[in-house]
Amino acid sequence: MNLRRKKLWMTVTLAVLAAAVILIPAPALAANPIERFVMVEASQYAFTPATLHANPGDTVTIELHSADVAHGIYVEGYGVSAEAQPGQPVAFTFVVTESGVFRLRCSITCGALHPFMLGRLTVGPNWTLARAAALAGLAVLAAPLAVRRETA
């Protein structure tokens, strides 16, 4: 096999692998959906607990308590939110469907670092990160091909 043909095969192989990384669906979890109740305390500038865990299909109820000033919680990817004054907790419920990591953001201006008051909702394994790392690896493997092709 000449060099050019070899490079072509390597390029095609990497492209197929990249397509597979992007397109192959994540394996479904065997765990049965459950109801989860989480009490989240918001204070400048963090949610406690900082990371919530759930599995796809779970029904999650978040009870938000504000410890200092008024805070809100907005669940990225699901678009649900609630706002709580100190001493007046609020609860809301939603069903998580997609796996991945979603940011929890404070939705009421609460101080200097308000735009960066974040938490995380982790739903099942973080397949997005795994896919992203695999794509980065493939990109690094593809680099020598691009260089050789130019200098050939």
Binding site: T128, A136, V140, A142, A146
Partner: peptide, 18 residues
């Protein structure tokens, strides 16, 4: 973000190669 970061890794590897 994933695309940009993968492109950055590709660019770094390409410069390292050259």
């Amino acid at each position: 973000q994933v695309g940009v970061l993968a492109l950055g890794a590709f660019g770094a590897a390409r410069v390292a190669q050259r």
